[in-house]
Amino acid sequence: MRKIVVTSGKGGVGKTTVTASLGRKLADMGYRVVLADADVGLNNLDVVTGADSRVVYDIGDVAAGRCRIFQALVADNESTARILPSAGGGEEMSAQAFRGVIDSLTDCDFVFIDCPAGIENGFHRAVSAATEAIVVTTPSASAIRDADKVLTLLSAYRLEDISLVVNRIRPDMTARGEMMRADDIARLLGTPAVGVIPEDDCVTLYQQLGRVPDFALSEKAFALLAKNIADRTKKCAEIRMPLRRRRRWF
């Protein structure tokens, strides 16, 4: 079982979206996937996956012994992945207790832990339970700086692997030299980029309705990312924008 924490330091860079989309892609590939929400205070994974109305027990209940782990798992409507939600309870949960809950998920291939923003207790709790880490950043200066700080902190943990995902890349702007390229960001942070996710309106539009369709550029990028994660490869594959057809009179 691979336990992967998805973290960033800065909030709003797309940790939860990456966790949900990557988990769903791996579930589509036939892997048994659990998406665990470690953002205890500001839980959003259930909202992004549309499972919020079906949550009965949460991770805090499992840690407190009020239910069994399988009772807390909620099936994802859009894939075969299961969600381990946190419903606001268990803010005082220790890192050991959280790790115990994650380790009790034995019948799965991947556990993705959605880490809270910041580098306080919640961060420590989430990272302590993981064996690998994915750091999500965007091409903004503040996100890159926070990612660098998080990478420094992660080096103190016993993690087998640390990778980078660059989210919200604008291929048109990078082509014009107006936005940093993903490989430049990866070089700056000294961490290989395994996923480059383009800025995509489909994420905003379809996330409210259910699942982003496969034709969306971001979904294609998530498919490449999922393949990289499953194969443990470090290819920085960027999705190319479709060329605009030139309109002609004849």
């Binding site: 700086r145 420094t152 942070l189």
Partner: peptide
């Protein structure tokens, strides 16, 4: 220099300063 290059230079200095 293009904005991306300027940003890269700025980030490089910032990260070194932080470290």
């Amino acid at each position: 220099l293009k904005p991306a290059k300027l940003m890269e230079e700025r980030m490089k200095e910032m990260l070194i300063r932080d470290k």
